[in-house]
Simulated assay, not measured.
Amino acid sequence: MSRSIKNIFFGFVIIFLIVQMIQPVRNIDYGQVPSSDISKVYQVPGNVQSILRTSCYDCHSNGTNYPVYAYIQPLSFFLENHIKEGKKELNFSEWGLYSQRKQTHKLEAIENQIKQRKMPLSSYLYLHHDAKLSDDKIKEVVDWIESIHTEDK
């Protein structure tokens, strides 16, 4: 390998290592469930809560369970942006801050998204196989949502 190619390679390695020191703010709640969490607003059965935590909360709550690769740049910036966008669309940790109308709309959207298998995203499922929703899990969540709609009427 020529000297200039070695210098270029060495330069890339140095830049890569320096970029690793730049880390975004993490979406970590330190295990505390806020009073505005969906589980404090509605009676969420344990099985449904488990499904939501496994398949939804990483991107749609204030508490993300970060995998090892989340600390490597530029993946870290990509993930944080993805989480930020997910929370903007739906945040289970801030559910109680939504109006009743918005809660109803969000429940309908959740039901539609999981029935159409648009959520969780396939890019998320690629590395988080346990988050995949089986037909039974989808039915459990949909049944729970429909029971809430029945209570609200």
Rank of each mutant, 00 (worst) to 15 (best):
K115P: 08
M119W: 06
M119Y: 07
D135P: 06
Q100F: 15
Y98V: 04
V142M: 05
K137N: 04
D136Q: 09
S147Q: 07
D135V: 00
I110P: 01
D143K: 02
R101C: 09
E89V: 12
K115G: 05
Y126M: 15
E89K: 14
E146N: 06
E111S: 02
K139F: 03
F92Y: 07
E146M: 03
D135R: 01
I110G: 00
K115W: 04
L97V: 10
T104V: 13
Y124V: 05
P120V: 01
L121C: 10
K106M: 13
D143G: 03
D136C: 05
L127N: 09
K139V: 01
D143E: 07
R117S: 08
H128W: 07
E94S: 08
K132I: 12
S93C: 07
K118T: 07
K139L: 02
E89H: 12
I145G: 00
K118A: 11
A131E: 10
Q100M: 14
P120R: 06
E94D: 10
L97W: 11
E146P: 03
W95G: 01
K106Q: 13
G96Y: 04
E146A: 03
T104D: 14
M119F: 06
K115A: 04
A109S: 14
H129P: 13
I138E: 06
W144Q: 00
K118W: 09
E94K: 11
L125G: 09
S93N: 11
I145F: 00
G96E: 06
E94V: 08
N112F: 15
E111Q: 03
K132L: 13
M119N: 06
K106W: 11
R101H: 12
S93M: 08
Y126L: 15
S134M: 04
R101I: 10
K139Y: 07
V142H: 05
K102L: 07
S122T: 12
S122R: 15
P120H: 08
Y126A: 15
K118S: 10
L133W: 02
R117I: 09
